[in-house]
Amino acid sequence: MASSSPLYETYRFSVEDYHRMAEAGILVEDARVELIEGEIVTKRPIGSRHLACVDRLTGLLARGVGFRAILRVQGSIRLGDRSEPEPDLVLLRPRQDYYAAIPATPGDVLTLIEVMDSSAGYDREIKLGLYAREEVAEVWLVDLNKEWIEVHRRPISGVHTEIQIRPRGESVSPEAFPDLVLAVDSILG
Results as ranks from 00 to 15, higher is better:
150 E>D: 13
119 S>F: 05
92 L>C: 05
157 S>G: 08
103 P>S: 08
92 L>P: 04
59 G>W: 06
24 A>P: 07
101 A>V: 12
44 R>H: 09
54 V>L: 01
86 E>P: 01
145 N>K: 14
64 G>M: 02
47 G>C: 09
131 Y>L: 05
23 E>T: 11
174 P>M: 02
74 Q>K: 05
24 A>V: 07
156 I>L: 13
67 F>I: 09
74 Q>A: 12
50 H>E: 10
138 E>A: 06
63 R>C: 10
140 W>G: 00
24 A>E: 15
18 Y>A: 06
7 L>I: 09
53 C>P: 03
64 G>N: 01
111 T>Y: 05
19 H>M: 12
144 L>A: 10
110 L>E: 06
181 V>T: 12
34 E>N: 06
159 V>M: 07
168 R>N: 05
83 S>M: 11
158 G>K: 01
162 E>F: 03
97 D>V: 05
152 H>S: 10
21 M>T: 07
13 F>K: 02
13 F>L: 10
9 E>R: 15
56 R>I: 00
161 T>C: 08
185 D>W: 09
85 P>T: 04
52 A>P: 01
28 V>N: 11
141 L>W: 00
125 E>P: 07
43 K>Q: 14
9 E>N: 12
158 G>H: 03
81 D>K: 10
11 Y>C: 06
62 A>P: 04
156 I>N: 07
3 S>G: 12
30 D>T: 15
124 R>C: 04
18 Y>H: 09
94 P>G: 07
104 A>T: 11
23 E>R: 10
73 V>G: 01
4 S>H: 13
54 V>M: 01
19 H>F: 12
188 L>W: 00
148 W>C: 13
66 G>A: 07
6 P>C: 07
85 P>D: 07
184 V>W: 03
189 G>L: 10
21 M>S: 08
165 I>E: 13
179 D>V: 10
175 E>I: 10
147 E>W: 06
183 A>E: 14
143 D>R: 01
168 R>F: 06
104 A>Q: 05
152 H>Y: 14
84 E>K: 02
27 L>C: 09
41 V>T: 06
53 C>L: 05
66 G>P: 07
29 E>K: 11
99 Y>G: 01
119 S>N: 11
35 L>E: 04
144 L>C: 12
1 M>H: 14
14 S>L: 05
164 Q>T: 12
65 V>D: 00
83 S>V: 09
54 V>I: 13
105 T>S: 14
46 I>V: 14
179 D>G: 15
180 L>S: 02
133 R>C: 10
94 P>W: 09
67 F>R: 15
3 S>N: 12
182 L>N: 04
20 R>C: 05
73 V>W: 01
77 I>S: 00
135 E>V: 11
161 T>P: 03
120 A>T: 11
166 R>G: 03
100 A>I: 11
136 V>D: 02
134 E>A: 13
145 N>L: 15
107 G>S: 09
73 V>E: 02
16 E>F: 06
26 I>V: 15
57 L>E: 01
156 I>V: 15
112 L>W: 02
